[in-house]
């Protein structure tokens, strides 16, 4: 049986209450909006690029503890990374939270989200910010949707 504490780890609860980089990035050269129409979670991700690197990143919006903590920790883990590195990290993250991989070695602090794989209904919450990031990197104009 899945344990609630696997999902709601202290770090996740702490980030959901005090999200990092919760701000609009002034002069952001990329931004995207993502939402989950089923639950109404909605985030905007702002990126300030320096060539191919993510120089600054911020986000704003509303959602559940999982989606908010995921967005917060995502901003911390991608700052300074190249586009390819960020996308690779999302690849690892996605595999772990969907239960396709148990290899958490690449995730760093993001391993706290491994418990999400026990809660299939919450995978979309954990990946919403990442899908939004990807849309921003690709310069998509339309809001991305989890559906």
């Amino acid at each position: 049986m899945a344990d609630l504490r696997d999902l709601y780890q202290e770090v996740i609860l702490e980030h959901s209450k005090a999200p990092r980089n919760y701000r609009e990035v002034k002069g952001a050269d990329k931004k995207a909006e993502g939402f989950n129409p089923l639950c109404g979670d909605r985030f905007t991700v702002y990126l300030q690029m320096n060539g191919d690197s993510i120089q600054d990143v911020g986000f704003q919006g509303s959602g559940c503890a999982i989606s908010k903590a995921s967005a917060s920790m995502m901003t911390q883990s991608i700052k300074g990374k190249t586009r390819a590195q960020a996308q690779e990290l999302f690849g690892h993250f996605h595999k772990v939270v969907t239960g396709q991989s148990e290899d958490e070695s690449q995730l760093g602090k993001l391993t706290v989200f491994a418990g999400v794989s026990e809660f299939p209904m919450r995978v979309k919450c954990a990946t919403l910010a990442w899908h939004t990031l990807q849309a921003a990197l690709e310069g998509k104009q339309e809001a991305v949707s989890t559906e």
Partner: peptide, 26 residues
């Protein structure tokens, strides 16, 4: 301070089925 989806997940772990979301009434 708690999003309804988190309420729904925690109650589900207690065997309690409720609905969370906008209830098709945005």
């Amino acid at each position: 301070g708690v999003h309804p989806h988190d309420v729904g997940t925690i109650l589900d772990q207690e065997g309690i089925a409720i609905r969370t979301g906008h209830h098709c009434a945005q």
